[in-house]
Amino acid sequence: MIEFSVSGKCMTVFLSGEIDHHSAAGIRKRIDEETDRLLPQLLVLDFGNVSFMDSSGVGLVMGRYRNVSAHGGRLEAVNLSPWCYKIMKMSGLDKIAKIQMTGVQR
């Protein structure tokens, strides 16, 4: 459902399945636990295996943005399907964080 990969000060979270109000609570808790423990400078949320998302997914990203910003880190949401991207754009999140349909080459 959710996997973590840490490389230096970058933490990547691989999300999968359906993100709605029901599933978002558990996902949020796990990401925040790891964020608070590792204090990453860059938090990457990878939506590559997300099959469905409603506005709860936007809330999830907004909340994690706030959390990681609180200790000076940045957030990126990558590999969004055109569908998820459309919902994400409605929030204006793309103006404050990197929101993209492709992955990141590192």
Partner: peptide, 10 residues
């Protein structure tokens, strides 16, 4: 907080 406030907009 965790709600984006986008429900009706969506």
């Amino acid at each position: 907080g965790e709600r984006a406030g986008l429900g009706f907009a969506v």
